[in-house]
Amino acid sequence: MNLSIEQVGKRYRGDFWGLRDFTLNLGPGVLGLLGPNGAGKSTLMRILATITRPTEGRVLWNGEDIAKTPDGLRSVLGYLPQDFGVYPNLNAVEFLEYIAAVKGIDGRAARQRIDELLALVNLTEARKRPLGGYSGGMRQRIGIAQALLNDPKLLIVDEPTVGLDPEERVRFRNLLSDLGGERIVLLSTHIVSDVEATATDIAVVDRGRLLAHAEPEALLSGVEGRVWEWVLPSAELPAARERWKISSTFRRADGVHVRVVSAVPPSPDAVPVAPTLEDAYLSVLEGHRAERLEKVA
C-alpha cells in the first residue's frame, strides 16, 4: 500500500499556485498535515481525493496514476472534506445507505456497517432524525461516518475535529490512531494537539510547498535545547514580542510566563524547557520564512 505524490502543482486563476513542486511518499500510518490557513492543505487533500486534477506532476496509488485511473483509488477511498453538505430531509441511516450504494457496498454489509458507524460516532439515538435538524457537531460526525463506510485503505480527513466537543474530539483522535495501523490516514488540520495525539508522521506545509516531513520525534529533536521559558512583568511583554518569536504566554501571579523558540537564551533568567510539537512546528515555519526573506534580500 503506497501513495506517492510526485512534484505535484496546482495553479489557480490569476497565476496563483495553491501547491507547487510537492513531493511525498506515504505508507501505512497517520500523516498529520500541518500548515497555516491558505498553506495548500485543502488543495492537496482535494487532489488526493480525485476531486481536483493537478496542473503538473502526478499522484500514484500503488503505482497507478490517479488522474488517469481514479476509480482504482476511489473504491478504497474515504474522504471527509472541510466543507460538505447533507440532504436535510434524509435521516442518518437513509443518508449513509445512499452513500453506501453510490460507493458500491453490498446492501446487507452496508446496513451492519452503518449500525457500527453510528454507534462509533455516538449517533445511534439520533439515527432516525432528519439531518436538517442536526447540530454542526452531529453533522460533522455523519461526515466521519460516511468517510469510513467502505472501510477505506486511504482515509483523507480535512479539519475533522471542527465543531466536535472535547469528548468526541478525543474519541475521534483515538479512532484515527487505531485506523492508522493498517491503512494510510491523512489528517489535515491547524490544531497541533490533534496531530500530536495521532500522527506517526508529520508534514509541514506553507505557501503551497512542503517544508518538512519527519516523524514527530525527529521534529522535536530539531528544537531540543532551543525552547526557553522565563517570567516577565506585563509591561515588558510588547517589547519581548517584537524581539522574539513567542510561541505561548500565560499569566501568573509572578508575571507573564513567556515561551520562546530561539538558538540563544532570550534572557539571563530564561530556562530551557522540553519542546512541544507546537514549538517544533513554529520553528520550521519561522526557519523557512527567514530563509525566504534572506533570499529576497
Partner: peptide, 18 residues
C-alpha cells in the same frame, strides 16, 4: 444545492453509476 459533490464525486465512477 446541498454541497454533497465532494462526497459523491470521490466515489468510484460517478459518471457511469450515479
Amino acid at each position: 444545492r446541498f454541497d454533497t459533490t465532494a462526497l459523491l464525486f470521490s466515489a468510484a465512477r460517478p459518471l457511469g453509476r450515479q
